[in-house]
Design a protein around this nucleic acid. Structure first.
Lengths: 331, 331
DNA sequence: AGGGTATGGGAAATCGATCTCCCAGGAGGT
DNA sequence: ACCTCCTGGGAGATCGATTTCCCATACCCT
């Protein structure tokens, strides 16, 4: 049906080997005239390399992949965009897969991608405990780097943010605004970032810090947190949300209930996504240095060996201050 | 390095053919004892099928793909989730690629996916004019279905929504609420859905319908539309936004300027995404029957031949009424 | 003129799984 | 006892590109 390399070679009157050298651009001298002939033949036949065959022979695909817990979370989309830009800059292509927040689905997708579709894979693990097995298995086939979150026992490098530093920055910032009664809104501790943020919060504030723990990372959960917060009115003058989607639900709920943000309660979040700017008031949040993290992750995939070591690399967070944490009520 | 099928066959004491039959589950009888032996051998060696080899031989991969203009648009994420559920239900995997709203990038990604990574591809074309070429080329290799939007001359089926009907539903609904001075907020007409919505709006309202045309589909553009609308205060009592992100920017701008929604201006949108519910007020919008559309698109990919025909299939829209189009100011 | 060295280019092996033959041997029938 | 039919299973071809040899020719130098 479609033209094969042998057809091109025949039409050009050369061997398959020569045709391959021309098409693949192998670093080997071929007479300019033959190059021309092969190229014309290829054009004439509309030849396109069969990538399955190429992949089988060379073991490479020129593609990287990324698996995220859910595309519905805009932070993960930002992360994908950063990786995608990086990969495209090298002339490659990035393919994405959505694990639907389900370790089983995640395992299947990692498996599918690693098996002949990509040269290397970035994984944002769904859970700390359950994602490790699939990642470890995949890492024996292709280089894998964990990103943002990490799973124990995966046996690969993780590129992530320094969550302790981030929590400290937020707390320092809020105290600088005169806030003392700070609460943390976080989801169940199944992700490493959630766990690290909670731990850091406890480390810094101990008993003084209030915590509102939720079952999931959704706007709905954020609304629930808002309602609980309203019941605690007076006991809390600042909130740290461990994710942007939580903050969205929380702020809209507070707004509707007439709780003034930031005057009565300052609100801060993580994952500086675009919506946070649109909210009323715009939200102060922690921004991940995604471009730098993406650079590093892709470099690790190229390095291969460097990725095969259980180790966490932490990047410094940035604080983006907006109206939601404003001085408001000075003391 | 890794075990191959021949290793499994050797350890089990059978031929490669038999080992393959067992592993691949080919509908061919093999003695139970041999099945058992092969399976044990495979387990023992940790055998994993080399998918590149399988793909080369069989020409299939068990995977479908989808290319969207941008993952930053939550509507496209919803669309991906619907397709993903559908594909997973059949035991497959869906891989995603983000075209960064750029036809050149889109072309490269379509090309990469179609070439050995997927059995069929869903494309939401970036533009009506420039996406057709790449789609057409890809369609000669694998079945392709256009989704939501369509590009001319692509030579494939497009599965989309009936935009005319949707515009009519919105106008009828708004009129039913006593609104007469209706404006359309839309972006440049480079996408088929934008063009169809604008055309339908003109068809229905002619000179009576106001139109605010924007350069892009972003919240920022929505804010700009909001400011323009404020200048037209009094001349407009209802707005139809051609996309949800436009509506988000528009509503927040109106809110801040003290323009009452829906009392002074009713607001409606397309692409019933989750954020619309969170806005204040929650937005009335058109919902795409994504599950039905996904079913159809995947069925077309399986049918193969059915997809190779330039034709547009339109699904009926649904109207989701929320507070933003409330009766408010009765007449 | 002869030997040495590039340099271009071809033949054939290879990647690993699948699938089409085709054969051996047992069951069943007359 | 002989023939037919059926079933299980193996040998080898095949998918298409790459890559490793290795040979032929041309070019240089002494």
């Amino acid at each position: 049906m479609t033209a094969r390399l042998v057809d091109v070679a025949q039409l050009a009157g050369v061997s398959r080997a020569t045709a391959s050298r021309v098409i693949a651009g192998t670093p080997r001298n071929v007479a300019p005239e033959l190059i021309e002939r092969v190229e014309r033949a290829a054009r004439e036949l509309g030849y396109r390399t069969n990538q399955s065959a190429r992949a089988l022979r060379t073991g490479t695909t020129g593609t990287f992949g990324v698996v995220v817990p859910s595309l519905a979370n805009p932070y993960f989309v930002q992360l994908i965009e950063a990786l995608s830009r990086r990969v495209r800059a090298d002339g490659g292509v990035l393919v994405v897969s959505d694990a639907a927040n389900t370790p089983d689905i995640e395992a299947r997708e990692i498996d599918t991608l690693v098996n002949g579709k990509v040269d290397g894979l970035i994984v944002v693990p769904v859970t700390t405990a359950e994602s490790g097995t699939a990642i470890k298995a995949a890492a024996s086939i292709r280089p894998i780097v964990q990103f943002d979150r990490w799973s124990e026992g995966a046996g690969t490098v993780a590129v992530t943010m320094d969550n302790h530093a981030a929590i400290s920055m937020l707390i320092d910032h809020l105290r600088g605004q005169g806030r003392e009664k700070i609460a943390l809104v976080a989801a169940e501790q199944s992700s490493s970032s959630g766990a690290e943020r909670s731990a850091a919060f406890r480390d810094r504030l101990g008993q003084a810090g209030r915590a509102i723990v939720l079952p999931s990372i959704t706007t709905d959960a954020g609304r629930k947190a808002g309602r609980r917060l309203i019941r605690m009115r007076g006991d809390v003058d600042a909130v740290v949300c461990a994710a942007d989607v939580l903050a969205i639900g929380l702020v809209t709920t507070l707004n509707r209930a007439g709780v003034a943000v930031p005057d009565e309660v300052a609100v801060t979040a993580f994952d500086d996504t675009a919506i946070l700017e649109v909210l009323d008031p715009p939200l102060t949040s922690i921004r991940h240095p995604l471009d730098a993290m993406a650079d590093r992750a892709i470099a690790l995939l190229h390095g291969d060996a460097a990725a095969r070591e259980e180790r966490v690399e932490r990047f410094a967070p940035e604080l983006v201050v907006r109206a939601s944490s404003g001085a408001g009520r000075e003391r």
